[in-house]
């Protein structure tokens, strides 16, 4: 019984049937992909395992072929592994066929790595980080990524040709690695990969000038102490605030319209006032009383970078598989002719 199972698992015929089954399922099923964008359109944004369990499982009638093909591919992987093990124990002419061995080992490693990454990996597509900020990698406790600086490179006819984010990877606030992330030049560490997606600028505050025309930038979160000892806290900055007739306020857009600061003033005598300051209209009386004399001149912008931050624990193993496979293919290109001259091939 055990022997029959083993020889079945090592059978080349079984391999061909399994591969044909997977091919036919994927062929038929894949033609559904373009007509169901909500199901299949965002598959690359999550690991395959997450997609299978969260998106595919509730829609089995449209995704059953994926499960079938995945099962057959796993079976093909097991089949290839068994063949490989069988060869290791039984084949005499090991060196003559090392190309084929490496090629098959590469397939096994890549398939295994893909399964591992699909189950244990995570993906954060389109993560926005402002220059100077750092984000916590929520799926990777203890780790954070900081964007130190950002520089777009523009071509002669306008559109950007590169976007260079200088980032630091931190673990428990200790820098581990500093690197530039650019197009086709990601940050790679273990299975972590950071690639650029896009970039932009966002309004974060205003540039003011004082009586001597010296400019000063104020952003949400800043604090100012005036000459009369009052403390002004600029709690947050809103680029476009809408004031309704009933006095209520709402956030309109991310573009600059009616910029506003929510402020809190602590006067020298300890009294406090909290409210809104919209520099394009009037300066509120409490702000005047606090000795605020700055004049708004321009909007202050901050660059941000949009990055993809993915983690695939299987990626290094897949890379090893790719190296084995490439070496195997190159060696097999020679051994193919040698085998043919010797008429050495399995006959089934």
């Amino acid at each position: 019984m055990l022997k029959t199972t083993w020889s079945l698992l090592c059978s080349l015929k079984v391999a061909i049937f399994v591969a044909s089954g997977a091919t036919l399922l994927l062929m038929g099923g894949s033609l559904q992909v373009p007509s169901h964008p909500t199901l299949f359109g965002h598959m690359d944004q999550v690991p395959f395992g997450t997609w299978l369990s969260e998106t595919a499982l509730p829609h089995l009638s449209k995704t059953w072929w994926f499960w079938g093909a995945a099962a057959l591919m796993i079976l093909l992987g097991v089949n290839t592994l068994c063949c490989f093990i069988d060869w290791l124990f039984n084949l005499k002419a090991r060196w003559k066929k090392c190309g084929e061995y490496l090629l098959h080992l590469g397939v096994i490693l890549i398939l295994g790595a893909y399964i591992w990454g699909s189950i244990s990996g995570w993906r954060n597509s389109d993560t926005k980080i402002a220059v100077g900020d750092q984000i916590v990698l929520k799926d990777w406790p203890g780790y954070a990524l900081k964007l130190n600086s950002f520089k777009p490179i523009f071509g002669t006819n306008g559109p950007p040709i590169d976007m260079i984010s200088h980032v630091t990877l931190l673990r428990d606030d200790t820098p581990l690695l500093e690197a530039d992330v650019a197009i086709n030049a990601p940050l790679l560490r273990g299975g972590l990969v950071v690639t650029p997606v896009s970039f932009g600028k966002e309004p974060v505050g205003l540039i003011f000038t004082d009586r001597t025309e010296t400019s000063q930038t104020i952003e949400g979160g800043d604090t100012l102490t005036t000459d009369n000892g009052s403390r002004i806290e600029f709690l947050r900055f809103i680029p476009d605030l809408k004031q309704h007739r009933d006095g209520s306020l709402s956030y309109r857009t991310d573009r600059v319209g009616t910029p506003a600061f929510q402020i809190k003033i602590t006067f020298a005598d300890g009294n406090q006032w909290q409210g809104w300051y919209t520099p394009t209209t009037a300066v509120p009386r409490p702000l005047q009383m606090a000795g605020f004399v700055l004049r708004p001149r321009a909007v202050a912008y901050q660059d941000y970078s949009i990055l993809t931050i993915n983690y695939d624990p299987g990626a290094p193993m897949a890379m090893a598989g790719a190296i084995f496979m490439t070496t195997g293919v190159l060696i097999s290109l020679f051994s193919f002719y040698r085998k043919r001259t010797r008429n050495d091939r399995p006959s089934i």
């Binding site: 994927l26 894949s30 992909v33 373009p34 299949f40 598959m43 690359d44 395959f48 997609w51 090629l103 893909y114 993906r123 597509s125 197009i183 086709n184 030049a185 990601p186 790679l188 990969v193 950071v194 690639t195 993809t308 931050i309 993915n310 695939d312 990626a315 897949a318 890379m319 790719a322 496979m325 490439t326 293919v329």
Partner: peptide, 27 residues
């Protein structure tokens, strides 16, 4: 095979994953 390997490494560097589930990738 070499085409697929080079493409996969490039995709990993450019997009952060080495196999893309779009119809061209599948085919």
């Amino acid at each position: 095979t070499l085409c697929m390997i080079v493409g996969a490494i490039w995709a990993h560097w450019a997009w952060g994953y080495y196999f893309s589930w779009n119809i061209k990738g599948i085919w």
